[in-house]
Write a protein that binds this DNA or RNA. Structure first.
Lengths: 222, 222, 222, 222
DNA sequence: CATGAATGAGATTTCATTCAT
DNA sequence: TATGAATGAAATCTCATTCAT
C-alpha cells in the first residue's frame, strides 16, 4: 500500500497545493537568480530553466516577469511585518527591537531591499492595476496592524494612527538609506580610501540612528 | 579680428565653449524627454533627434545613455546643495528652511526625484567607475560644505560632522518618501477611495514631518 | 423505457449521436468565433471555452485546429452544392438562378468565402492527407452531380462534363472575386474616395457579370 | 589611381542607389526562402541570415515581415502589367497573347501566384494602411493603363473601362484557378489516381479556357 | 471520455552601441 | 567632428499540441 509519494515526482500540479508548490519553485528560482545577477531582473527563460520548467509554464502562474518579483517582494513584506508584529507585542523597547528585527530580516533576505528599491521604478511599471492594488492593500493592512501593536505596547500616549505614520516614515528611511549605501564593492572601497565613507553609511548602524531620531518622541514605557 | 559667422550655422563644435553648448543642448533634450515619458529613460535616438543631432554624435559627448542622466542628476544635486547652503547661512531656523528649500527645488525640477530614485538601480549600473566617483565626490564635498554651514548657523552644539550625517539621513528620507508616494494617478485615486491614503503620503508635508523628527535634537539658536 | 436524464447534465458523450452533437457544438463555437475575429482563426482555447469544453477535449474530436475549419467549410460546400442542385433541376435559366443561389448562400453564411479563401493557403496546410482527400472527394462528387443536373436541364447540347468544368471555373471565379473585394472597411472607403472603386468590385454584381460571361456559350432552353 | 571599386565591398549603404540595392538583396533573400518553404512565410531571422545581414537591419528597410512580401508582390504585379501592356499594344489577338503572357510570367516567377493568393488573407493583415494603399494604387493605375492599351488595340467597340473591368475579372479568375489546383504533389497524384483530376485543373490550360470565355464577347479585329 | 497543466518553438521588435564614411 | 547604417543581443508572450491524471 503506497502512502508516501513524494510530490516532487508528479510532473503536473493538479490540485491547489501542488500549484502553490510550483509557484514557490518559480519564486525561489527567481530569487536565486536575482541574487546572482543583481541588480537586473533575470529573464523569464532563465527563471524557467532554473526551476526545471518551460518558459510557457511560467506564464501559467504569472502574467508578467514583474509580477513574479512583486509577488516575491510582497511575501517578504508580509513576513517582515509579521515578524515586527511579534516583536512589537512583547518588546520592552519596541523601537530598538523593531530596528533589530529589520536589520536581521534584511540580513537573512539579502534580496529584500534590492527588490524593494526597484518597486516604484521598475516592478510597478509592468503589472496590472489589480495586482498592484493587492500588493498595496497587503502593505496597508500590515502597516495598520503593526501600528496598533506598537501603540498598545508603548502605552496610550502615541495612538495607533501616529504609529502607522511613523511606520511609513520608517519604511521610507530604510529604503533611502539602503539605496545610498548600495554600490559596487570597488566603488565602496574607493570612497573609503578617499575618506568619503560618509556617502556609504553602514546600513545597520545608520538605520538605528535614523529610526531612533524618527521615533524619538515616542516615550518608552517606564 | 573675428570674422562674423553665425554660430548657429556651424555644424561642428570646434572650441570648448561650443562643445559645452552642444553638451547642454543634449542634456536639455534628455531632460525634456524624460519629463514627457517618465519613468522610463528616453532612447538615445530620441534625445539626439530632439537636440537636432545624429545618434552617433551623442556618443562624442557621453559614453553611455546613463551618463547623460547622471550628469543631469549631478547638476541638480549641485544646484540644490548650493541653494541649501545659501539658505543655511542666513536662516533663522535652518531645518525649517532647508525643508522649504528642498520642497521648492523638487517643485521647480520635477525630474529631480524621479532621476534620483533611479540612481542606484538604473543609472549607476551603466556608467564608468570614473564618472561614478566624480558624481560621488561632488555629492560628498557638497554635503560636507553644507554640513559646515549648518553647524555654524545653529551654533557649536552640533558639530559639522554630525550635521553631515544628518544630511545623509535627510537625503535618504527624501528619496524614500518620494518613492513611496510615487505611483500612477489612477492607483493613487484608488488608494484614496479605499481609505489607504496612508500609503501615498503627500510628499511636502511628509518631508516636513520627517525632517523635523530627524533634526529635532538639533537645538535652534536661542 | 427511457429513464429521463437531462442530456445537458451528462459530461460524457457515450453514444454516437452524443458525439456528433458535441462535434457540432465545437463547430458552432468555431464558426461564431471566426465571424467575430475574421480573418484570423480563433485559438483552440477560445473555441473550447465557447463550447463549454476543455481544450484537450477539442482534440478528441478533431486532430488539428485547421481540421475544424475544413470540416466547417466542407459542410458549407455540401449545403451550397445541394441547394444549387435543387435550383438547377427546376430552373428556367440555370445560370441566372445558380448565381442567385450562390449570392444568397454567401449572404446567409458570411463565413463561407472567408474560409474558402483560406483553404489552399492556410487550412489545407495542417490537415491529414486523409481528411483533405475526403474533403476533395466530397467536392468532386458534388460538382459532378451538379454538372449532370445542369446538363440535363439545359438540354443535350452541353454535356455533363463540360458543365462540371464550368463549375470549376465558377468556383475559381467566385473565390478570386471575393478575395479582390475583401479589405478592411477603411481601405475600401479610401479606394472609393480616390475613384479606385474598380479594385473593390461589389461582389454580387461582379459575380453575375463574370458567371454570365463564363456560361455565356451555354444556350438556355428555348 | 583607384577607379573601380566594387560596390559589393562597401559594408554600408550610404547613398540611395546602395540602399535600393540592399533592399533588393533582402527581397531576393525573401523570395528564395519563400520558394523553398512555401506556403509559409520565412522568418525575418532567416531572411536576414540569407541576405548576409543582421535581423535588425531588415527593420531598417521594412517595418514588418509582411511588408517585405507585399513589396515583392507589388514588384511582380508591376512587371506583369508592364509585360502585358507591351503585348497588348502590338498583339494581333490580345486575349490569346495576354493569356500566354500570364502563363509565361507565372512560369518564370513561381512565387507570384502563391504570394498573390496570400495577399488578402495574410499579407494585407499586417501592413500599414499607407503601404496597402500604395500597393492598391499601383495595381489600379496599371490596370487602367492596360485596359486602355487593350481597348485601343482591339478597336473602338470595347471601351477602356470595360476592358479594365474585364481585367479585374481576369485577375480574379487567375487567382481562383491557381488556388484550386494548388495542392501537395501527393494529393494531386491521389486525385489523379481516383479520376478526380477535375479538381486539380492544369493551370495553363484552364486559364486559357476561362479567359477566352470571359473575353469572348470582345471581337478580335478582322 | 474529459481535463487542463505543461511544453517549447517561434515571432516580432527595440535599442544601445559601434564604426565606416 | 559628425553622421546614421549596421549590429545583434535581449526579451516578452502566444498558442497548437501532448499527455498525465
Amino acid at each position: 500500500m503506497q502512502i508516501l509519494r513524494p510530490t516532487t515526482e508528479r510532473t503536473r500540479a493538479i490540485d491547489d497545493s501542488e500549484k502553490a508548490a510550483r509557484r514557490d519553485t518559480l519564486l525561489n528560482a527567481a530569487k536565486t537568480l536575482f541574487l546572482e545577477q543583481q541588480p537586473s531582473l533575470p529573464s523569464v527563460q532563465a527563471i524557467a530553466s532554473r526551476a526545471g520548467l518551460a518558459k510557457g509554464t511560467v506564464y501559467l502562474y504569472f502574467s508578467t516577469k514583474e509580477e513574479i518579483f512583486i509577488s516575491l517582494l510582497g511575501q517578504m513584506y508580509e513576513d517582515l511585518l509579521k515578524q515586527m508584529n511579534e516583536v512589537a507585542e512583547k518588546a520592552a523597547d519596541p523601537v530598538e527591537e523593531m530596528v533589530e528585527s529589520i536589520v536581521a530580516y534584511t540580513h537573512e533576505n539579502p534580496h529584500f531591499l534590492p527588490l524593494a528599491s526597484m518597486a516604484s521604478t521598475v516592478l510597478e511599471q509592468n503589472i496590472s492595476d489589480q495586482h498592484l492594488m493587492a500588493f498595496k492593500a497587503m502593505l496597508f493592512s500590515g502597516t495598520i496592524r503593526l501600528g496598533q501593536s506598537i501603540s498598545q505596547t508603548v502605552g496610550g500616549q502615541t495612538d495607533a494612527e501616529a504609529c502607522a505614520v511613523l511606520l511609513v516614515h520608517t519604511h521610507a528611511h530604510m529604503l533611502g538609506l539602503w539605496q545610498m549605501q548600495q554600490m559596487p564593492p570597488r566603488i565602496r572601497e574607493a570612497l573609503s580610501r578617499n575618506n568619503m565613507g560618509l556617502l556609504a553609511p553602514e546600513f545597520n548602524q545608520a538605520l538605528r540612528t535614523g529610526l531612533k531620531a524618527l521615533w524619538g518622541g515616542t516615550p518608552s514605557p517606564p
